[in-house]
Computed example of a mutant assay.
Amino acid sequence: MLDSEAAKWVAGTAYHCYSGDPRAQSALHDAHPGKGIWFTECSGSHGPADTPEQVFRGTLTWHARTSTVGTTRNWAKSVADWNIALDTAGGPHNGGCDTCTGLLTIGADGTVTTDAEYYTIGHLSKFVKPGAVRIASTSFGTTGWNGQITDVAFRNPDGSTALVVHNENDAPRTFAVAVGDRTFEYTLPGGALATFTWPRSGALPSPKREIQLIGATATAQPATDGTAALAVDGAASTRWSSGAAQEPGQYLQIDLGRSTRFDEVALDSGDNLGDYARGWTLSASDDGTTWHDLRTGTGTGQLTTVNVPGTRARHLRVSSTGTAGAWWSLADIRLYRSQ
């Protein structure tokens, strides 16, 4: 329909959660970027033998990954659960779903129980204000579940930021958040969902445009079966790792495919804390043969941001100059240009 003459009468597309994957929303957005995407219905469900505890945990973890984070990272303008309130028998209904769950369960005596959807929707409805826009953030989890940290971030109209984070794993995971030159670390229990907020403070950072590394290739030493390409695939849920303790001489090298101007390089080691380079050198080359060093430094955390204003090069190399028992990982290398 969006490819037909009728498209001019269509504002966009509504999705439900009962089949498929939220990434389908991004595929549709890429095909029709001028059309809206709304996520308008989802419900938890239970089987006849499920305990309330099983229903709550399973619903919370699935909805957190798929609805709270998954839909919003894939262009949804709205998130809605169905139903708002049900009785203890899952009703009233007229021949519809009798295993669905709601945000609230109302007992015969009027008592109210908050269900998992109350919290998964609550992280958005309480902290993400009307008129907010989603802003870029690095997510390591996938809607298909890979046991990592997944997240989504929003900028509210008053300039404040809301970051919603879900731990897909059953075990606790520790992650780092970096905003400008400020960072913090947090350990999130297994399966948990948490929101972090901070107010607008002073002037916002100068806008930067990420340079898409389309067609870029990478090599590494140690080679580790050709996984170097995972550091330039634009997906933080994949990574290159050294597969051995850190030592000087290890490197990852990128061919951008063409001479490219950039002002900043982000070296993101992902969410496995401790596998950042203890010491590093960033070098550049026009031909892949003659190199010159841009910056050297000491790693202090998972994300290292290197300012190299006005640099132009086709090839980049990040070399390890330190020693550590931990492996060295690079989930993403990102280039930015000042606007």
Rank of each mutant, 00 (worst) to 15 (best):
E185Y: 06
T120W: 00
C17K: 05
F154M: 07
H32G: 07
H63K: 06
T99M: 03
L267R: 06
F39W: 04
S259A: 13
G58Q: 12
F154H: 03
D225T: 10
G47M: 06
D286Q: 15
T143V: 15
D98Q: 10
R57Y: 12
T281Q: 13
W198H: 11
G47H: 05
H46F: 11
T61R: 04
W75Y: 15
Q302H: 10
G297E: 03
L2G: 05
C42Q: 14
F39I: 01
S201F: 12
N94E: 09
A326D: 10
T40S: 15
L213G: 00
G110S: 05
A216E: 01
G190M: 02
R134A: 11
F140W: 09
A235V: 10
D275Y: 01
K208Q: 10
P207A: 09
T138S: 15
R312F: 09
V306Q: 03
G297Y: 04
T138Y: 14
S319G: 13
G122H: 03
P309K: 01
P157G: 08
H63S: 14
H123A: 15
A14T: 09
G279Y: 01
A229D: 09
H63G: 08
S43W: 01
T13W: 13
E185W: 10
G102P: 01
A24Q: 04
L124I: 07
L330M: 12
V55D: 07
T143M: 11
I214T: 13
W145H: 13
G141T: 02
S283N: 04
R65D: 10
G110I: 05
A192D: 11
R334A: 10
G299V: 04
P199W: 03
T142N: 07
G270N: 01
T174G: 03
P172I: 01
V112H: 00
T120L: 02
I333R: 00
H292V: 12
